Simulated assay, not measured.
Amino acid sequence: MAAAGAVAVGLVVDFTVHCPSKYLRAPRGKGRTVAVGIPDAFDTAETAILSTATILSGGFAMLVTSSVQFNADLGLLSAMAIVMVMLVSFLLLPSLLVLGNRKAPTSTASLKGAS
């Protein structure tokens, strides 16, 4: 079932690109705080993630009706993987963004003084 794993990895990358890109634009571009940046990022990206996950999982779920066992298994595993990736994107990714922001330097002035 390597094909289902490849689909899941591809979608993890796709889903996780939406939110961090929106998140990085919001606090830096508009001078907002992290507390405002994460909900703002998810407000704009959640529709894209939700619609992509719904369409793709529905499409792969249709393969479950196939008479070829490999296709049916691929469809079931891929649909489950897509839903799980979507849930991880909504539940775990915000926490990872906050943790990543804590480790990042607060300003570029501190970096300029170090050189």
Rank of each mutant, 00 (worst) to 15 (best):
S51R: 11
T47E: 09
V83N: 08
V12E: 13
A45M: 13
S66H: 06
L11S: 03
R28P: 00
G29I: 05
A45R: 08
T108D: 12
G58S: 10
S66K: 06
T54W: 03
A81N: 10
M1L: 09
T44K: 12
A109I: 13
L76V: 01
A8H: 07
M80C: 08
F90E: 04
L56C: 06
F60I: 05
T16M: 05
V17H: 05
A53I: 02
A61I: 03
L97Y: 02
S57N: 02
A45F: 03
G37E: 02
V17F: 05
K30W: 11
L99D: 10
R28E: 09
N101K: 12
A72F: 03
A114K: 11
G29K: 02
T106V: 14
C19V: 15
V34Y: 01
E46C: 09
V64R: 13
P20W: 01
Q69E: 09
S67N: 09
K112P: 00
R25A: 11
L24T: 07
K112R: 15
R25P: 00
L92K: 10
S107V: 04
G75V: 04
L63E: 06
D14E: 13
S89Y: 01
V9F: 12
H18V: 06
A104Y: 11
G37R: 00
S51D: 08
R28S: 11
A8G: 03
V68L: 10
T47H: 10
A6C: 09
R32F: 10
T52G: 00
V68N: 14
T33E: 12
G10N: 12
A104F: 11
L87Y: 10
V7G: 05
S57H: 02
K30T: 12
T44Y: 07
A53V: 01
L77E: 07
Q69L: 13
A3P: 05
R102P: 00
V85N: 08
T44D: 12
V88N: 08
Y23T: 03
P94E: 06
G58E: 08
H18I: 04
L93K: 02
A104K: 13
S57A: 14
G75A: 05
G31Y: 03
A72M: 06
P39R: 01
M1R: 06
Q69M: 08
F15L: 14
A4P: 07
T106K: 15
G59K: 03
A72K: 04
M80V: 14
S110A: 15
S110P: 03
M62C: 11
P39N: 04
N71T: 04
V64H: 08
K30L: 14
R32K: 14
D43G: 13
A8R: 15
S78V: 05
A45G: 01
G59P: 06
